[in-house]
Computed example of a mutant assay.
Amino acid sequence: MRSYTATVNATEYPPHLKHKVIFETFGKLQPSQAMLLINDHDPVPLRFQFDAMYPGKFTWEYMEQGPIAFQVRIGKL
């Protein structure tokens, strides 16, 4: 079983706060820690933001890929 330092259920936040909370949570992770992101759609645009902001400094692994729920393990390298 995977362990997570934090979990962000993006469905619980209004749209204007989702990415803010996700990036704040990621920022608090120590290297080798990971967070779990839960969302109701594929967070592809968020992945592009991570690529732009943290190139080579994170991992992205789908734990569940829809169609109703998406769960992504985001690790800090």
Rank of each mutant, 00 (worst) to 15 (best):
M1G: 14
Y4D: 01
T5N: 00
T5Y: 10
A6L: 08
A6P: 02
T7C: 05
T7G: 02
V8M: 00
N9S: 07
E12A: 13
Y13G: 01
Y13M: 02
P14E: 12
L17E: 14
L17F: 13
L17K: 14
K18A: 13
K18E: 10
K18I: 15
K18M: 13
K18H: 02
K20I: 08
V21S: 07
V21E: 08
I22G: 07
E24F: 08
E24C: 03
E24Y: 06
E24I: 00
T25P: 04
T25M: 07
F26E: 04
G27N: 08
L29Y: 03
L29T: 09
Q30R: 13
Q30G: 00
P31I: 04
S32K: 11
Q33G: 04
Q33P: 02
Q33A: 09
A34Y: 00
L37P: 02
N39T: 13
D40F: 04
H41F: 15
H41W: 11
D42C: 13
D42Q: 14
P43L: 08
P43R: 11
P43G: 09
L46H: 10
L46I: 15
R47F: 12
R47A: 07
F48Y: 15
F48C: 06
Q49K: 11
Q49R: 10
F50K: 01
F50L: 01
A52S: 14
M53H: 12
Y54D: 02
Y54M: 07
P55K: 06
P55V: 03
K57I: 00
K57M: 10
F58Q: 10
T59A: 06
W60F: 12
E61V: 11
E61Q: 15
E61N: 13
E61S: 10
Y62S: 04
E64W: 02
Q65I: 01
Q65L: 13
G66R: 06
A69D: 10
F70Q: 10
V72N: 07
V72Y: 02
R73C: 14
G75K: 01
G75H: 08
K76W: 02
K76N: 03
L77S: 10
